[in-house]
Simulated assay, not measured.
Amino acid sequence: MVRRWKRVMAFLIAIIFCINCVMNIGVKGTYAENSNKDSNTEEVHTSAEEKEDTTEIEKETTSKAEKNKSDGDLSVDKNEKTTNKTEDDESKTKAVNNTILDWDTYKSKTTLVTVDDTNKRIYVKTGEALTLLSNCSAENYKDYIISLDSSVTGGAIEIPFTYDGYEFKGLGTKECPFEGNFNIANIKIQSTLFAGLL
């Protein structure tokens, strides 16, 4: 009888142990499920926060893009204004270049040139003076002596192709070539010095 009792007790203990194991597994499984749910919830919360941050970043990016676009539109307007201004300047320059520079106006450029009509001499101080001279009527200076002003020291003078809205056209013309003397030894020029020769 005692043996039977021991067997029953062992059997009950085994059942309790099995139940306990099953319960622990169930508890652990439940705990694991709850943990997963909590981590998923955290991920969901994190994802929502990330989405909010992403949305904020997208808003900022969009507003910056719109600002840059509007700035770009302004710069386009500025470029159009600049282009229009440049075209206006070019048309003014062309209008000026189509007219002959008045001889008296040329002579009044005292900072660039000294003209001695009595001795038929032109003393240039800069290359710009020759650019302007090429826009005067060739009849005014065709038999003058062109020299460097005594105040100019150093090497060569450079004749710019354009100055003050005028282009260098060469001294003299085909109809009225330059017949005077050109006494400037060292010059730098990007075009033909004389437009008409005898």
Rank of each mutant, 00 (worst) to 15 (best):
Arg7Gly: 13
Met1Arg: 03
Lys92Arg: 13
Val22Trp: 01
Ile16His: 03
Lys81Phe: 06
Ile13Tyr: 05
Glu80Thr: 05
Arg4Met: 08
Trp103Asp: 07
Leu132Thr: 10
Thr126Gly: 07
Gly155Trp: 02
Phe11Leu: 13
Ser39Tyr: 09
Thr55Cys: 00
Glu49Ala: 14
Val96Asp: 09
Arg7Met: 14
Asp77Trp: 04
Lys85Ser: 01
Lys142Thr: 14
Thr105Arg: 05
Leu132Glu: 02
Asp53Trp: 10
Gly154Ile: 02
Val76Lys: 15
Asp149Tyr: 08
Asn119Cys: 11
Tyr106Ile: 07
Asn140Gly: 02
Glu175Val: 06
Glu128Phe: 03
Ser35Val: 13
Asn40Asp: 11
Tyr141Leu: 02
Asn84Arg: 02
Thr61Glu: 01
Ser150Met: 12
Ala95Thr: 13
Asp88Asn: 11
Glu52Ala: 11
Ala14Gly: 09
Ile187Trp: 01
Gly127Arg: 02
Ile13Ser: 01
Ala10Asp: 05
Glu66Arg: 08
Lys188Asn: 15
Thr131Glu: 04
Gly26Val: 02
Asp116Arg: 05
Asn135Gly: 04
Phe17Met: 04
Asp73Thr: 13
Val152Gln: 05
Ile100Gly: 04
Ile146Gln: 05
Glu139Gly: 13
Gly72Cys: 09
Ser75Gln: 10
Ala14His: 08
Ile25Trp: 12
Thr105Leu: 09
Ser147Asn: 13
Glu56Lys: 09
Phe17Ala: 03
Tyr31Ile: 15
Asp143Cys: 08
Thr126Ser: 14
Tyr31Leu: 13
Asn79Thr: 07
Asn97Glu: 01
Lys64Thr: 03
Thr114Arg: 04
Trp5Val: 12
Thr83Ile: 00
Phe11Ile: 13
Glu33Cys: 11
Thr61Ala: 00
Ile157Ala: 11
Glu90Asp: 11
Ala195Trp: 00
His45Gly: 04
Trp103Ser: 09
Met9Trp: 10
Tyr166Asp: 06
Val22Lys: 09
Asp143Met: 07
Asn34Ser: 11
Arg4Ala: 10
Lys85Ala: 03
Gly29Tyr: 09
Ser147Met: 13
Asn186Gln: 11
Ala195Ile: 00
Ala185Lys: 06
Val113Gly: 14
Asn135Cys: 12
Lys81Met: 09
Glu43Thr: 03
Thr41Asp: 14
Glu175Thr: 07
Ala185Trp: 11
Asp164Pro: 07
Asp73Ala: 15
Thr55Tyr: 00
Ser47Phe: 10
Asp53Ile: 08
Val113Pro: 15
Asp149Thr: 04
Glu139Phe: 02
Tyr166Lys: 00
Asp53Cys: 04
Trp5Leu: 09
Ile19Phe: 01
Thr62Asp: 10
Glu58Ala: 08
Pro177Glu: 00
Glu87Lys: 00
Ala156Thr: 08
Ile100Glu: 03
Lys59Gln: 12
Gly72Ile: 01
Cys18Asp: 11
Asp77Leu: 10
Glu167Ser: 11
Thr162Trp: 07
Leu112Trp: 06
Asp143Ile: 05
Asp143Ala: 06
Asn183Val: 05
Ile100Val: 12
Asn34Cys: 15
Glu49Ile: 06
Lys174Glu: 03
Ala129Arg: 10
Asp164Arg: 04
Asn34Gln: 15
Lys51Ala: 10
Asp116Phe: 05
Asn98Ala: 03
Trp5Met: 05
